[in-house]
Simulated assay, not measured.
Amino acid sequence: MLLENQVCFDVHAASRALDGVYRKELRELGLTYPQYLAMMVLWERQPVTVKELGVALRLDSGTLSPLLKRLEVAGLVHRERSAADERSVLVRLTPEGAGLRRRALEVPGRIFEATGLDLAEVLELQGTLRRLTAALDEAADHG
């Protein structure tokens, strides 16, 4: 049972390496990787509820709430109670948050280059990781 033979460690090591590249690329935007992911969801669609954002990012509210608070303090998002359901909190981009998208558009290309993979390899990897995630989610739900 060697560490180097464990798929979990390979996934963990790749994730840590990817986080390192993102940290470097996102520094000038003033975002952490989890904040960048939240902003990506909001750039795609808004408003979203905190619950919807948590589902999209696979984060619990204990992790998501401080992340959103930091984005709000930075002036990038605004949170407000839903008029339709006071139990729900809506998250919207501020004009500054929406404007940050233009500066973030180059990040995916730089990350792609950093992987050293060609497009076919990246697409194959994405498919493999999505199947792995689905299988592990299923095992966790029925384990």
Rank of each mutant, 00 (worst) to 15 (best):
residue 10 D to W: 14
residue 11 V to C: 04
residue 12 H to M: 09
residue 12 H to W: 15
residue 15 S to K: 14
residue 16 R to M: 15
residue 16 R to A: 15
residue 17 A to W: 07
residue 17 A to P: 01
residue 18 L to H: 06
residue 18 L to F: 12
residue 21 V to W: 03
residue 21 V to F: 05
residue 21 V to L: 02
residue 21 V to Y: 06
residue 23 R to S: 14
residue 23 R to F: 12
residue 25 E to N: 05
residue 26 L to N: 02
residue 26 L to V: 10
residue 27 R to G: 02
residue 27 R to P: 04
residue 28 E to C: 05
residue 30 G to F: 03
residue 30 G to R: 00
residue 32 T to C: 06
residue 32 T to D: 11
residue 34 P to W: 01
residue 36 Y to Q: 08
residue 36 Y to A: 10
residue 36 Y to K: 03
residue 37 L to S: 03
residue 37 L to D: 03
residue 38 A to Q: 04
residue 38 A to I: 06
residue 39 M to E: 01
residue 39 M to S: 04
residue 40 M to E: 12
residue 40 M to P: 00
residue 40 M to F: 08
residue 41 V to I: 12
residue 43 W to S: 00
residue 45 R to L: 11
residue 47 P to N: 07
residue 47 P to W: 11
residue 49 T to H: 03
residue 51 K to A: 12
residue 54 G to Y: 05
residue 57 L to P: 01
residue 57 L to Q: 01
residue 58 R to I: 13
residue 61 S to M: 09
residue 63 T to R: 13
residue 63 T to S: 15
residue 63 T to V: 15
residue 65 S to G: 07
residue 66 P to W: 06
residue 68 L to E: 01
residue 68 L to A: 01
residue 69 K to T: 10
residue 70 R to L: 08
residue 72 E to H: 03
residue 73 V to T: 08
residue 73 V to G: 02
residue 73 V to R: 00
residue 74 A to D: 09
residue 74 A to M: 08
residue 74 A to T: 05
residue 76 L to I: 05
residue 77 V to H: 00
residue 77 V to W: 00
residue 80 E to Y: 03
residue 80 E to R: 03
residue 81 R to L: 12
residue 81 R to Q: 09
residue 82 S to P: 07
residue 82 S to R: 14
residue 83 A to V: 13
residue 84 A to Q: 12
residue 85 D to K: 10
residue 85 D to M: 06
residue 85 D to T: 13
residue 86 E to R: 12
residue 87 R to I: 12
residue 88 S to P: 06
residue 93 L to H: 04
residue 93 L to C: 05
residue 94 T to N: 01
residue 95 P to A: 10
residue 98 A to M: 02
residue 99 G to Q: 03
residue 100 L to Y: 00
residue 102 R to S: 11
residue 103 R to S: 07
residue 106 E to F: 08
residue 107 V to H: 00
residue 107 V to Y: 03
residue 108 P to H: 08
residue 110 R to L: 09
residue 112 F to S: 02
residue 113 E to D: 08
residue 114 A to F: 07
residue 115 T to D: 03
residue 115 T to Y: 09
residue 115 T to V: 09
residue 116 G to L: 05
residue 119 L to G: 01
residue 120 A to S: 12
residue 122 V to T: 13
residue 123 L to K: 02
residue 123 L to P: 01
residue 126 Q to H: 11
residue 126 Q to N: 06
residue 127 G to Q: 04
residue 127 G to I: 13
residue 129 L to S: 00
residue 130 R to L: 13
residue 131 R to T: 12
residue 132 L to V: 14
residue 132 L to E: 09
residue 132 L to N: 04
residue 132 L to C: 04
residue 134 A to Q: 05
residue 135 A to T: 15
residue 136 L to V: 13
residue 136 L to T: 10
residue 137 D to Y: 13
residue 137 D to L: 09
